[in-house]
Amino acid sequence: MNNATPLLQLSSIGKQFGGLGALSDVSLHIRRGEIYGLIGPNGAGKTTLFNVITGLYQANAGEFQFDGNSYRACKPHVLAQAGIARTFQNIRLFANLTALENVMIGRHLRGRAGVFGALLHNLATRNEERAIARRAHELLHYVGIDKPGQTLAKHLSYGEQRRLEIARALATDPLLLALDEPAAGMNATETESLKTLLQTIRASGITVLLIEHDVKLIMGLCDRVAVLDYGRKIAEGIPEEVRNDPAVIAAYLGGGDD
């Protein structure tokens, strides 16, 4: 795939729940290697768009291309296989499994051992299991979680849980890492270390899509930003442009009618 084509290309995406239009005519593209921010007031459709991209919802209209292939109406696991990994706004870890097991499950789709592999426990399976465990340890170290084999995911601190979700998503070897409000509820120090982590991830060649309420984080981190309001894209561009866009200011401060 050549580097000039965008990694993700959305054309006129629409999504309705019953008669309620949550998204209409949203088009955007994310280039390889950038950090792309998605902001907007509450209820603007950010998470809906995010769920469409990750396959949790199916779009009613529009085209969705990822890495050169079309993926409309695909299940989440197909998109994960294609290279889209995500985290959740309200953390969804496998709470009663250890941190290590959580990340090992993230490796699932890069493994091949099936029932027969499990039963025979042959050389290929043993090697695969070892590789999975090694990679999981690496990733936990990468996001800064130690003691992973013993601690249940739900007993980690809030910031660690957020980072564990990122490690689990990275375990799928994604091309695009999609983060749904990763800094929500974090204090200033935790946000700062998250920012560093995301920059490291981008430097390793993974494209990042970020939904965030923390405008400061978005402005300091993203290469380009799109703004959603009432299910429509009202602005897109580099952070400085977007910040000064009258439509964006109106959307955030109200008074768009006058």
Binding site: G55, L97, E101, I105, L119, E128, I132
Partner: peptide, 26 residues
């Protein structure tokens, strides 16, 4: 053998959170 395998982990993931499991490619 099943419990301690890739398949067993995937089952436990489904037990814990089906949506997260499918988002992880299961």
């Amino acid at each position: 053998r099943l419990e301690k395998s890739r398949i067993g982990r995937a089952w436990m993931a489904i037990r814990e959170d089906e949506i997260a499991a499918s988002a992880m490619g299961i």
